[in-house]
Design a protein around this nucleic acid. Structure first.
Lengths: 223, 223
DNA sequence: CAGAATGGATAGTGCTACTGTCCGATAGTA
DNA sequence: TACTATCGGACAGTAGCACTATCCATTCTG
């Protein structure tokens, strides 16, 4: 397969593929002559994965590179690769100095019986969420955490079950990537749908079903 | 309060505040003379909300403006404002023409007993997630949906319960915003923590607890 | 063998979210 | 009242990112 065909089957423009090659998101093709190369199904699959991370996950190119490096590094233990991937995927929150939020997060972790690693990406993210909630005047937000934890546990178990069904190490790791950001996106989408449904039901109860027009046609008519 | 103090209490640079004023994310201050203005706690609160949406939610400025407009518009019914906010907050996925994904999503919606609105933001997002999953070779991803739905329902009920505790319309709507993206962020963070815990436990069972160093110190030493 | 396509290098584009600079007017202090 | 800091406002400039366009010598294809 040459670059034009790779472009056709994936829908990614040729210059973009070249760019990804330059940036190391895509391994170089197999050389057939000093300035010609051939690409295989691996490239196609990898390219789709990259696009998925960029488009659905909204990950910056540099992070995609990190994730792929972790995927491709056979040195690391599975758990370690998972750690790297998780660290890369999670949005890099600026660390806060809000001690109240830190304490809340620590107490939460303790309640859950998890071991406390202050550098864990999830922990930092949680702290910054709590700090933000406090700052914008929602101190009660923290009380939702324990319920969230039940949900989060369930999700994590699902993730793991999904991933452990995979035959090879590579597929497990790719499954983690997929499960992480596709999973997050899916849960967020379904949550929205469920919220909409609930809200529509409520609103139907209250004002006999008039104003449940969904998703405001005016502000974004193009979608 | 003048602009410098607003800047000091929120940590947002003065030029950025001016920028937000220009962009209509922040209402103009109360005039005290032709070229002087005074800002109040409303401004402070609003500014923090804007920063939260931009930083935690990663929303583009234009979307923040839409959300705020919906917040401030007293014309709309509560449910309608919710719809606008949801539509704006959800990432604007490019609509796919993957009929299989569309069908999968429709069947899912039907199974859940929700009514099918093809323009609903959550629906589009779901379709694009499914399309991506299929494209990158994870056709089995769709089987997770029903379990995700249970989780999503729970979350939606929590969201609603949280929000209905608010006294005023304004606070309900702001609660929705907060619940939406802070909630998503919190669930994602907790999911990561739970996954880490599970993975560590597994890995401890298997290889007697050696390689569970968490979050790869090397790749991002600054965090 | 001619014209299209290829790999590779390098420069440029478009977008977004700020940031810097300048201005004349005003506020606070001496 | 003088004097300096700060103000609001306008507008140009910047940084970073994800591409995209152009060029070139080479190689493939009909």
């Amino acid at each position: 397969m040459r670059i034009a065909e790779l472009s056709r089957t994936t829908g990614v423009p040729v210059p973009t593929i070249k760019y990804y090659l330059r940036e190391g998101l895509l391994p170089a093709g197999e050389r057939t002559s000093p300035n010609q190369a051939r690409y295989g199904e691996d490239h196609e699959r990898r390219l789709r994965l990259v696009r998925a991370m960029v488009e659905v996950g909204g990950l910056p190119i540099a992070v995609v590179r990190e994730v792929l490096a972790a995927l491709d590094d056979p040195e690391k233990s599975l758990h370690k690769s998972l750690g790297t991937i998780e660290a890369a995927i999670g949005p890099a929150e600026p660390s806060t100095d809000d001690e109240v939020a830190v304490r809340q997060a620590e107490e939460f972790i303790a309640r859950q019986g998890w071991d406390h690693k202050p550098q864990a990406p999830g922990f930092q993210a949680l702290v910054s969420v709590l700090a933000t909630a406090r700052q914008i005047g929602h101190p009660g937000f923290v009380e939702l955490l324990d319920d969230y934890a039940r949900v989060g546990r369930t999700l994590a178990e699902m993730d793991l079950a999904y991933v452990l069904g995979m035959p090879s190490r590579d597929e497990v790791l790719e499954g983690v990537v997929v499960g992480s950001f596709l999973g997050d996106a899916a849960v967020a989408a379904i949550r929205r749908l469920a919220r909409r449904d609930l809200s529509a039901r409520r609103s139907a109860e209250v004002d006999s079903g008039s104003g449940a027009d969904d998703a405001a046609p005016e502000p974004r008519p193009e979608c």
